[in-house]
């Protein structure tokens, strides 16, 4: 309870353990989420296009709208929790000298845009939307991994 008064996380070993633990598991989540999306939506331009738009030559049908909406619904919810927890911990640990919120936007904005661009790509069949989905999906995962590593380094150094 001392932390609630002093706000000094460095002197609260249990709080450090809590933040390190969740960062470690979110690191594992972010890595495995990319692998899951490789099978679900694809994480390359050709595979994602084939899954979203189908491929007549290979007799592949487009993914049903209901399935895509379910993926997007789940992605948005998990992304929301991940971004909220990571940013809350990173803000608490960030040094007082840093006033920039760029890292926060680089994590949150692509995480929000990724499922939206995937839905728009499916509904409009626009190839550049798939590129936008790939870029935003990879960017928020990379930013998430970087933040997890920074949190772990600050907590356990």
């Amino acid at each position: 309870m001392k932390f609630l008064v002093t706000k000094e996380w460095q002197r609260a070993p249990f709080l450090k353990m809590l933040m390190g633990g969740v960062a470690l598991f979110l690191l594992l989540f972010l890595a495995t989420d990319v692998v899951l999306h490789h099978f679900q939506t694809g994480v390359s331009l050709s595979r994602t296009s084939e899954i979203l738009f189908g491929n007549e030559a290979a007799f592949v049908d487009p993914v049903p709208l209901g399935t895509l909406l379910l993926w997007v619904h789940i992605d948005l919810f998990i992304g929301m929790l991940t971004v909220l927890i990571l940013s809350a911990i990173a803000i608490r640990l960030s040094s007082s000298a840093s006033k920039s919120t760029v890292w926060l936007h680089l994590l949150s904005l692509p995480a929000l845009l990724a499922p939206i661009t995937l839905t728009v790509a499916y509904l409009t069949s626009m190839q550049w939307m798939v590129v936008l989905w790939l870029g935003s999906f990879m960017l928020w995962h990379i930013m998430g991994v970087v933040l997890c590593v920074v949190i772990l380094w600050r907590v356990w150094r």
Binding site: R92, L104, S108, L112, I116
Partner: peptide, 29 residues
């Protein structure tokens, strides 16, 4: 002050996420 500005941005994103989650749920239904 610095932390509250950062938390304000994080909360704003959270609200946008929540709106998108609810919208996608309604669309799914």
């Amino acid at each position: 002050m610095k932390a509250s500005k950062h938390f304000g941005v994080a909360i704003a994103y959270f609200l946008l996420f929540l709106a998108a989650v609810v919208d996608s749920g309604v669309a799914l239904y």
